[in-house]
């Protein structure tokens, strides 16, 4: 059973080794950091897109207009029909009067509005706004509603949700490919760092073997080195992302608020709660695995005499 002091020894030696091996260490840390930075950025994009879609799903509804001269009973019948669908969250009735009020208030100047007097130009504009639980079901619901008797027109909530879902898929695949390639590069560079470390200390290792040092004792400085590179490579992008996230989301929200009513992003804590453990796990995991793998190959080559 290894002693506690061995771990401290390993950590001390690992740190020394990183400095002794500056060029390779920096290259490995840099690649790892770039990799995990991209991972962070992609994760942020994906999770925010998903979040925005979620919002859109509840905020954006489809609008259902009725045939002229429809009766209140018929309208109630249509509501009942729509409510039978599982993806429907709520159905909101907007009377012709409400529609006109809205229109007057938002689109017309007060003088122009008052010129209409008590007439309602949107007499037949009563409608339902249907909110969905699941935006993916929108097409199917629109088809269903269009088939109902008494329905004149049914507008879907534009292609926003579809566009966003498609976008998500592209980002997911693209990022998975890039991150995988970078992870391989990072693992390779950590392997190189460890194996130069081993060859610099060849003599020392050979003596250690001769004297009867355990394999654990011989390996631990290099494993620590690999893991430390992983940790540093994870912490750097995490710090950058933490600092940049709030600024960038604020800036984007400001820009887009003219286009959409409201764009809200995930708050930074929610994002970091996932990113910190994920990045550290990837960094440490890659560092550990590639140093172990390299050691297994390199240490065999060292003979005691």
């Amino acid at each position: 059973m290894p002693k506690i002091s061995t771990f401290f020894y390993g950590i001390g030696q690992g740190i020394k080794s990183i400095f002794r091996n500056r060029t390779f260490s920096l290259a490995s840390i840099g690649t790892m950091a770039a990799c995990l930075f991209l991972f962070g950025v992609f994760y942020i994009m994906l999770s925010n897109v998903e979040y925005i879609v979620k919002n859109a799903e509840t905020n954006v509804g489809i609008t259902v207009f009725f045939d002229e001269g429809i009766t209140d009973e018929q309208i109630e019948e249509i509501r009942a029909q729509i409510m039978t669908r599982a993806e429907v969250h709520t159905v909101e009735y907007i009377s012709a009067e409400q529609a006109w009020e809205n229109y007057k208030n938002t689109k017309l100047s007060p003088e122009l509005a008052s010129s209409f007097g008590d007439d309602n130009p949107l007499e037949d504009s009563a409608s339902f706004t249907v909110y969905l639980n699941d935006v993916a079901m929108q097409d199917s619901l629109v088809r269903f509603v269009k088939g109902l008797p008494g329905v004149r027109k049914c507008n879907d909530a534009a292609g926003i949700a579809d566009t966003l879902s498609g976008f998500n898929k592209v980002i997911t695949i693209g990022s998975a490919v890039i991150i995988t390639i970078l992870l391989f590069v990072a693992a390779f560079l950590i392997g190189m760092t460890v194996s130069t470390g081993v060859s610099v200390r060849r003599e020392e290792i050979s003596i250690m073997k001769l004297i009867g040092a355990s394999n654990f004792f011989i390996k631990i400085p290099f494993v620590v080195e690999g893991v430390l590179i992983g940790i540093i490579g994870a912490v750097i992008p995490l710090v950058i992302i933490r600092l940049a996230y709030i600024r960038i989301t604020n800036m984007l929200a400001e820009k887009f608020s003219t286009m959409f009513n409201m764009v809200s992003f995930l708050n930074v804590e929610t994002v970091m709660k996932v990113l910190i453990p994920a990045s550290l796990a990837i960094g440490i995991g890659i560092g550990f695995i590639s140093s172990r793998f390299t050691l297994r190959k390199q240490l065999r080559k060292i003979e005691v005499n």
Binding site: E203, E204, I207, L210, I211, G212, A213, N305
Partner: peptide, 30 residues
């Protein structure tokens, strides 16, 4: 190997360490 001490023709000392540390090394690694 812990029950065997060994010396070679070419000494195999670590050049960046003092005499004390070279000998102590054998105990530190154990």
């Amino acid at each position: 190997r812990r029950s065997i001490g060994i010396v070679f023709q070419d000494f195999r000392l670590l050049k960046d360490r003092t005499v004390f540390d070279n000998v102590a090394f054998a105990q530190r690694v154990l």
